[in-house]
Amino acid sequence: MMNNQKKVDEGLEYVKNAEKSLKTSFMKWRPDYESAAEQYNKAATCFRNAKSFDQCRDALLKAADCHKQNRAIFYAAKALDQAILVSKELGDLRNVGELANRAANMFQSHGSAESATSTLDKAGKILEAQYPEDALKLFQRAADISQDQDSVRQSAEFMSKVARIHVKLKEYELAADAIRRELGLREQSESYQAAGRLAVALVLVHIARGDIVAAERAFKEWGNYCEAPEVQCLEMLLQAYDEEDPEAAKAALSNPFIKHMDVEYTILARDLPLPEQTLPVINPVVAATSVGGGSVDASSSKADADSGQGNEEDFEEGGLC
């Protein structure tokens, strides 16, 4: 405890030195941003060692601002990247998405696209459990940057995360769009085995949407990338829904292949509504006769109906007289 306080005091001393560097005077017209950034970085290290993460993050943000003012964009982005990790330690994730986007902008301005996607990925993983919508946006941007840099495989990995979050949020229309984009990227990078697994995922998502026609269309379009067990599973599944056979659908969804997919798709398959068999329509006249235990000739039934109709007409003509 004493050692932690000592480190905090040391960090505060560095903060004072940084503030002095930023002051101007009659003989010093411009703040010394470079020295201030260095002092803030040293302060952040002291605060981190003392586990005073709030002060650590504050020092890092000030260091980032000083680097930016000094046009040291890469180092400013690095300071923001560290602030993201400190926010995780604090358990305060409210501004993680904003910090990640700011850092990514700076890395891109510096020409460091790989560092930009790394920061977005890191922040997305931190946010995914508590703030999946924010994480989704970060992964989406990382996918776009990777694709712009012709990193097709990496872009596909980020789109995979986007699709799975959409599934988790039950946003099946958006999930289908993300899977189709990922399929295109997997095809482009010749990752055919991964494309086969995605074809199964796309069919499951369309079934979750309640669109069996789209599910069949997806199988026809992408099923050629599936291996034999996957094809057999999908054919059985689609036939079960087409024939409204809940037992066959349940058996297909229990396939070991589906159970070993990414957890989001496994849960989706587990929770899919099974098809309902359409009950045959029962003739009410026959049903009533069956209850009485006898049978009625069709011609006599017709005659009774005609007789009833005639009585009703006579009643209408004669009135109450």
Rank of each mutant, 00 (worst) to 15 (best):
E190S: 14
D242H: 15
N4A: 11
A249C: 06
Q193H: 05
G196E: 00
R153A: 11
E114F: 12
V285G: 00
L61Y: 01
H166L: 03
A175L: 11
Y40Q: 02
A178W: 07
Q108N: 10
E13Q: 08
A77I: 11
S300W: 15
E221M: 05
A208P: 06
Q147W: 08
A178D: 01
L85V: 04
Y131W: 03
V285W: 04
G223D: 06
C46G: 00
S301D: 06
E171R: 14
R217H: 09
K170T: 15
E13C: 00
C66G: 02
V15F: 06
G292Y: 07
A248L: 15
G319H: 03
A43E: 01
I258V: 15
L238E: 10
T45Q: 01
M2L: 09
G11L: 02
V291W: 12
F74A: 11
K125Y: 09
S295E: 12
I267Y: 00
Q69M: 08
N283G: 03
S21Y: 15
E13V: 07
K137P: 00
P132Y: 11
Q5W: 06
L60E: 01
Y75V: 01
A201E: 12
K7A: 01
A163S: 14
K23R: 15
I212V: 14
V286S: 05
S118R: 14
M236D: 05
L185M: 12
E182K: 10
K125P: 00
G97C: 12
N17K: 15
G196M: 05
S21P: 11
V167C: 10
V96W: 00
L138N: 04
A287M: 04
E38G: 14
D32C: 05
A218W: 10
V152P: 06
F139P: 04
Y172R: 02
Y33F: 15
G97V: 09
A64M: 05
G308A: 11
P256A: 01
A269M: 04
T119E: 01
A199Q: 06
A195Y: 10
Q39L: 00
I126D: 02
Q69L: 09
M236V: 09
S254C: 13
S25I: 08
E235S: 08
L138R: 02
V162N: 04
V15S: 00
Y75L: 10
Y241V: 11
E34R: 13
L90C: 09
H206N: 12
E244R: 13
A43F: 04
K42G: 00
L202S: 04
I165Q: 01
S300K: 13
L234S: 01
H67I: 04
